[in-house]
Amino acid sequence: MKRLFIYLLIATAGLTSCTKIIEIDTKNAEPQVVIEGKIVDRLVEQQILITKTVGYDEVGIYPKITGATVKVTDSRGNNYAFTEKSPGIYVNRMRGVYGVTYTMDVTAEGKNYQASSKMPNPVKLDSIGVVSNSFFGEERKTAAAFFVDPANQTNAYHFNLYVNGVFADRIFVENDRLTNGNNLRVQLFYEANDNDDGLKSGDTFSIEMEGIDSNIFNYWFALSQQDGRGPNQGTTPSNPTSNISNGALGYFSANTFQRMNATVK
């Protein structure tokens, strides 16, 4: 068991400052199952990843759960068995269909986990490009996705950004609560490091746009508030609400998928 000592400087009016020691128990919690699965509207090898959480002093080591039974059914009566391609990675080559609800059923280490997600109607990604912004008198180039949000329906989107082939470790998520039916320009602000000044001429970049259901939006939005770069940076860290039963962490998403590539001029 490890203990962390926090020294607090306590100052009260008319009294001399003093140091107080507070002892906090930081014993590692029991490992939890983490399931990350997607069904997309392309004929590809769909993937469900099953791992375990680790203690705070074991960051980066995520044990894979092998020997699980993984299947997906849909609201049309189809059944899909997922096989273990490599430790903790379960796959099935299939195509998801919008408007259909998919239900995942996982039995791992003697426990059963389930989740459902309905694939939204597709929204076309019209184009991607670069937007120039001025920050304190300096120009900054930012990748952006352009599309029209459909009116009279609720939509939510999750974006992935790659710059020069490297995944930008940021969470980009939007919904149309305030923009329903509008022409949208979603900027994906990105910094490779603290001294980065944005995209540069000659950089290549790719944007992936996923149409997601409301539960998955809530999951990604909660994570975005905890990554230290969102609008609410003071949010207390906690596990985002999962749509998976029986206490598993992670998510199961049936979503549309589009990808475009471009080069910064």
Results as ranks from 00 to 15, higher is better:
residue 4 L to I: 14
residue 5 F to T: 12
residue 5 F to N: 08
residue 6 I to K: 01
residue 8 L to A: 15
residue 15 L to T: 15
residue 15 L to R: 14
residue 16 T to D: 14
residue 17 S to G: 00
residue 17 S to N: 03
residue 27 K to D: 13
residue 29 A to G: 07
residue 29 A to D: 12
residue 30 E to S: 01
residue 30 E to D: 02
residue 32 Q to N: 10
residue 34 V to M: 07
residue 35 I to Q: 05
residue 39 I to Y: 03
residue 40 V to W: 01
residue 40 V to K: 00
residue 41 D to P: 05
residue 42 R to N: 14
residue 42 R to S: 10
residue 48 I to T: 03
residue 48 I to N: 01
residue 50 I to E: 06
residue 52 K to A: 04
residue 53 T to W: 02
residue 54 V to L: 05
residue 55 G to H: 05
residue 55 G to A: 07
residue 55 G to T: 03
residue 56 Y to D: 10
residue 56 Y to W: 15
residue 56 Y to E: 11
residue 57 D to T: 13
residue 57 D to Y: 12
residue 57 D to C: 10
residue 58 E to I: 11
residue 59 V to I: 12
residue 64 K to S: 14
residue 68 A to P: 04
residue 71 K to F: 14
residue 71 K to W: 11
residue 71 K to H: 14
residue 72 V to D: 05
residue 75 S to Y: 11
residue 75 S to M: 14
residue 77 G to N: 03
residue 78 N to G: 08
residue 79 N to Q: 14
residue 83 T to Q: 08
residue 84 E to Q: 11
residue 84 E to P: 07
residue 88 G to P: 09
residue 91 V to T: 15
residue 91 V to S: 10
residue 92 N to G: 09
residue 96 G to H: 00
residue 98 Y to D: 12
residue 99 G to F: 14
residue 102 Y to M: 01
residue 103 T to K: 09
residue 109 E to Q: 11
residue 110 G to H: 05
residue 110 G to W: 07
residue 113 Y to F: 14
residue 116 S to P: 02
residue 120 P to W: 05
residue 126 D to T: 05
residue 127 S to Q: 13
residue 128 I to M: 06
residue 130 V to W: 04
residue 131 V to A: 10
residue 138 E to N: 05
residue 144 A to M: 01
residue 144 A to G: 00
residue 147 F to I: 07
residue 148 V to P: 04
residue 150 P to W: 13
residue 150 P to L: 12
residue 152 N to L: 06
residue 153 Q to E: 12
residue 159 F to D: 10
residue 159 F to N: 10
residue 160 N to W: 11
residue 161 L to R: 01
residue 161 L to V: 04
residue 163 V to R: 00
residue 167 F to T: 07
residue 170 R to T: 09
residue 171 I to Y: 05
residue 171 I to S: 05
residue 172 F to C: 03
residue 178 L to E: 08
residue 181 G to I: 12
residue 182 N to K: 15
residue 185 R to H: 10
residue 191 E to L: 11
residue 197 D to L: 11
residue 200 K to L: 12
residue 201 S to G: 06
residue 204 T to V: 11
residue 207 I to N: 07
residue 207 I to K: 08
residue 208 E to S: 15
residue 213 D to T: 04
residue 213 D to F: 02
residue 214 S to Q: 15
residue 214 S to E: 14
residue 215 N to Q: 15
residue 215 N to T: 13
residue 217 F to I: 00
residue 219 Y to A: 14
residue 220 W to F: 07
residue 221 F to V: 06
residue 224 S to W: 04
residue 224 S to Y: 03
residue 224 S to I: 01
residue 225 Q to I: 09
residue 230 G to Q: 12
residue 235 T to A: 15
residue 236 T to H: 13
residue 237 P to T: 11
residue 237 P to G: 11
residue 238 S to H: 15
residue 239 N to H: 09
residue 240 P to D: 07
residue 241 T to D: 06
residue 242 S to D: 02
residue 245 S to V: 08
residue 252 F to D: 00
residue 257 F to D: 00
residue 259 R to W: 01
residue 260 M to E: 09
residue 260 M to K: 14
residue 260 M to W: 04
residue 261 N to S: 08
residue 262 A to L: 11
residue 264 V to F: 04
residue 264 V to P: 08
residue 265 K to T: 13
residue 265 K to N: 10
